[in-house]
Every structure is written in C-alpha cells, then in structure tokens.
Design a protein around this nucleic acid. Structure first.
Lengths: 248, 248
DNA sequence: CGCAGCTATTTTGTATGCAATTCAATCATA
DNA sequence: TATGATTGAATTGCATACAAAATAGCTGCG
C-alpha cells in the first residue's frame, strides 16, 4: 500500500478519537508516514456524518452502501460500527445490522444532566488549573463568537461556541473528563438545535457567555460553575424544543 | 414517514454492555432464541478478563491466542477489540495490534475526580427519584456487606460494595449516568486495590457506608452527595497506594 | 561476547467467500 | 381491500485467504 512507510516511531499509537489534539497529532502522523488504520478513518468519517446529521437518527447503516461511499471493504466498516456502538452513536441490531442511535427527549435530558455536572466540574478545575494562555485563547474565541453573533452568522457562531466549551473542558488538564464530555456532547449535537435559536435566546446565550468569561477571568470557581450549569440547562431547553418540532 | 421507522417496531436491540439489567435481559433473550452477536460475547468475556486483571494492564492482545481461547475466528475478536478500544479498556497500536490500556496514577486520579462528581450527582438524583424498594435493596446489600466484613471475607465484601455503588447509580433513573459510571469504574477496578485495604481503612470504609445508607434513607440529598464524594476520595487514596506498590 | 544486517516466521490489516437470516415482492385467500 | 403465505433477493455474521508489516532468529563480522 504505502511502501514509504518503512520506518516507524513506535512511541505514538493512534486512537480513533477526534480530539482536537489527536486530530492534529494524526495529521502530523499522516505526514510523517505514520501507519493509520482504515477502520480509524472510517470511524471519524462516520462519526462526522452522524454528528452533522447527514446520517440521521434512526437511519439504517447499510454496509454495502457505506463501503462504496468510503471506498473500502466491509471489514473496516464493520469494525468502525462496533467502535461507534461502544461510543453510543450507533445501535447494533443482531442479524439486522445497525442504526444511528435515535434521539429521544429522555436521553437528551439525561445527557444534559451529565453535561451540566461535568461542565460545572470543568469550571472549578479550570479556575484552578488553566494557564493564562488558555484563558486568553478562550477570550479570543469569545470575541470571535461575538463578531459572528453581531453579523448574525449562525453556523460560525455555533462552531466558536462549541470550541469555547471544549477548550474550557480541555484546559482543566483532565483528559478523561475531556473525553467523556466530548462523547456525550457529540450525542446532543446531532439534534441540530441551532435553527431553533430565537433572537432573544441567542442574545441571552451570548450574555451568559460573557458572564462565563468574566468568572473564568476572575477565576471565581463557584460562580463559574453555577453559571455553566445554568447555561447548560438553558441549552437543554432549546434542544428539547428543537426535538419536539422535529418529531412533530 | 420514512421507511426507517419500520425498524422501531423491533424494540429490542442487543447492546454489548454488561449492565446488571442487560445481562439478565440477554440471558432471557438467549433462552428465547434471541439472536446474539459473537462479537458481543467476546466483548463481555474480554472485558471480564481485563477487569479481573487476568489480562493485565499493558499486556499485548494476540489475536490468534484469543481466538483459540474463545473458540472463534478472528473477525469477532477484532470487532470486540475495537469496541473495547472505544470503551478505553484497550489501546490500538496500528500494525502492532492492541494492548490492555496501562493504568497510571494520573489516569486514576482523573477518573476518581469524575467518579466523585458522578456519584455525588447520583446521590442527589437517588434521593429524589429512588423508590423505597430501591433503597430497601441497597439496605439489604449493605447488611450483606457488613456480614462479609465481620467475617473478613474480602472478595465477597468487595462484590457487595461494588453492587451497592452500582445500584445507587442505577436507581437514579438516569441510564446515561449509569453507563458512564460503569465504564469509568471498570477502568479503576483493574487496579486490584482490595489487597491494599488495611483493617483500619476497611473499618472506616464500612463506617462511611453506614452513613451513606443513613443519608439515603433520610433522602438527605446534600449530605449524601458530600458523603459519597469524600468516600470516593478515600477510595482513590487506597487505589493509588496499591498502584504505587505494583509499580514499585 | 555484541551487534548489524539479512531471512524466515509470525502477526496484523484488509478483502472476499459462504451460510444463515432477514427483507421484499408476488400471489392467493378471505 | 386487507391479510397472510411463499419464494427470490439482499444483507448480515462469521470464517478464511492473502498481502503487508513487524518480530524473531539467524549469520557473519568486529
């Protein structure tokens, strides 16, 4: 396949998570001729398709179709599906393949209860452990987000927003926390609740983000934690509304 | 509606998690002739081997050996390994197979921070949502545990202990919380810290459990949450000690 | 001894084959 | 028309085959 990959740095192993860090790591690895599992590529590809909503909740995953789309044989596809099943994005139906995990109001509520607690924890840890550079980067993202808000650019706003939350969780220094958060967050991102953001709610969310940034800047742990929990709680309402409309 | 809706008619899908509930469910399923993936069996088998420590952290997973041991071909074994990789119990090394994820003091600390928060949350939710029957069952397990403590039966004590914590998390009614908890807990259970329990520490742990049961019985949410967090924090110290001895 | 380089063996990664199951389309029947 | 059986096609689950890579084992050389 790739004969130039004759030398290896044995240190680095590839995982299939699309951590901000590990993505860039694997891009670097790719450039250096690091070996990469086909199944890992398929995982990332499928995960994106699912989270972007291109593969909607409940949709059946046909192996043949996926193979053609992703240009591989069934083996890596099947392995990827098992991986994603463990992640919860896919459900296995013995003898009947797999479907994209459906989203229900119940699981959304469950997940947000967890996300609220995890971000609350992240807030406390971030106040204690984040470097000034971490905070500066979050501040930069915040202003970028404000710009998108001012211009009414929903999708870019949303990306900045996600990035801020992720940074916050990552800069706690607790990688396990970050991974858990990312996995759970991926599930609800599928709900595509962006479109459901009314101007008032949008404004309010931005306000909350301002307070969040302030509390983080002051490293006011208790305040930040409380703000994040209530912010997440509001976000849940938006998601649930969007979900209600979808099914209606 | 979309044709995928047809799949919802089939309520039961098999997952690969060994929930108390889903284990019994799949046993029933088995008896009823429900289909079951070989890969799912291998997942459970391997997970047990890893958590029991029979496959120690860092050990290489040789596919041929596992195939012989589990009496299947490589396909289900490889799929199971991918599943467990997503769960974090196994690490993938491209072109060099997979190893049981090593345990480090850092990840143990990270995980316990999360477990503490999650059990704290579970305590609050349990006070609000648990049925009296749930609490009665936990009380029964508690007394069973006391009996094992009195007799100095470490392993059975440990099993009861685990079961109590699991019940507590399950009776919150938040399945996502329970799954997340179970996955993270599985990682640290591998540390085999039981042996490291001094008589004093053991007594103290039992005392803590008594207080935990009392708070739950009173449905004193704040108290229970605090007790659980500190209980977990103490448990972490034991685990870290055990880990230190192992590597020393 | 140690160790560099080569070769043989093992192991992994991917593709493919085959049997069993499920799905779909057709037809018969009430 | 709706319902149910029947049969052919599609799909899945598992096993296996084959190629590429990694490991282990030699050999000769210092």
């Amino acid at each position: 396949m790739c004969p130039e990959a004759a030398y290896y740095a044995y240190k680095i192993y590839i995982n299939m998570d699309q951590t901000q860090a590990s993505v860039s790591a694997s891009v670097r690895a790719e450039a250096l001729g690091e070996p990469r599992l086909l199944a890992a590529e398929v995982v990332e590809r499928l995960r994106d398709l699912i989270i972007q909503g291109e593969l909607a909740p409940g949709v059946k995953l046909n192996e043949r179709v996926l193979c053609e789309r992703l240009r591989t044989s069934r083996t890596p596809v099947r392995e990827a599906i098992k991986y994603l099943a463990s992640e919860g994005l896919v459900e296995l139906l013995p003898n009947r393949g797999a479907i994209v995990t459906p989203i229900t109001a119940t699981t959304v509520r469950e997940i947000f209860v967890l996300l609220g607690t995890l971000e609350g924890l992240a807030g406390e840890l971030a106040c204690a452990n984040a470097s000034e550079a971490d905070i500066a980067e979050i501040r930069a993202l915040h202003y970028q987000m404000l710009a998108h808000h001012a211009r009414g650019e929903l999708a870019p706003y949303f990306r900045c927003n996600q990035e801020i939350h992720l940074r916050l969780v990552v800069c706690t220094g607790n990688a396990t926390l970050a991974n858990t958060y990312r996995a759970l967050n991926g599930h609800v991102r599928r709900a595509r609740y962006m479109a459901n953001l009314s101007p008032e709610r949008w404004d309010h969310a931005v306000e909350e983000h301002q307070q969040i940034l302030d509390a983080l800047s002051r490293r006011d742990s208790a305040e930040l934690s409380a703000l994040l929990r209530s912010h997440l709680s509001n976000k849940m309402l938006v998601v649930l509304e969007a979900l209600g409309q979808q099914s209606a």
